[in-house]
Design a protein around this nucleic acid. Structure first.
Length: 178
DNA sequence: ACCGTGATTGAG
DNA sequence: TCAATCACGGTT
């Protein structure tokens, strides 16, 4: 059960809770040579519904973002600025567009660098995050972490209200003595 | 601070 | 059709 990775139920919740709960979780990726890369997620962002003007779904369903309207636990990966693949996991129930953007791990800073390190691209879009698809999440968390929050990166276009929402989550150091 | 780079989008 | 936009990153 544990080794099968986090699934639909984990992601079928408030996207803010999921974004926070993914901190400290391991992202696991099977490379073409069969080796498995594992990294600890340390930074995420939440994108929550059509009313969130920073969310891709803020203008309704399109061919690009329709995956966000589907089942939770599915991978949403798209090309940004013509160069960077950005990895998201769909959250909430079918019909409600929401996703968590994975921005960084303890080894890699930056959402584009993360996918580059994992060696993944748009081929994974709309696939279920699972072992058989080569990308999954394992909750190996132990001990407490100190979670910090702040505004999301690069969303000034969304207007003051949404740009300033503390929808970015990260952790820096373990709680001492825990 | 500035620019490379290309899919997506909405306007025309 | 087409130009403006953009959840970035590497370099000045």
């Amino acid at each position: 059960m544990v080794s099968s990775g986090l699934g639909k139920d984990f992601f079928d919740r408030s996207v803010l809770d999921v974004a926070k709960d993914m901190l400290g979780v391991s992202i696991c990726c099977r490379q073409s040579d069969g080796k498995i890369t594992r990294m600890i997620i340390c930074e995420t962002e939440a994108y929550d519904g059509e009313e969130d003007l920073a969310c891709h779904a803020s203008k309704g369903k399109t061919s690009r973002n329709q995956v966000m309207y589907g089942a939770s636990g599915v991978i949403y990966i798209y090309l940004c600025y013509g160069m960077h693949w950005l990895l998201n996991i769909v959250c909430r129930e079918k019909g409600y567009p929401a996703a968590v953007l994975l921005r960084g791990t303890t080894e890699v800073s930056g959402p584009g660098r993360l996918t580059k390190r994992l060696g993944i691209d748009g081929a994974l879009n709309q696939k279920v995050a699972s072992c058989e698809n080569g990308l999954w999440f394992e909750d190996n968390r132990s001990g407490e972490i100190v979670i910090e929050t702040g505004p999301r990166i690069g969303v000034d276009y969304a207007g003051k209200y949404w740009a300033e929402k503390p929808y970015r989550f990260w952790f820096s150091k373990p709680k001492s003595g825990a």
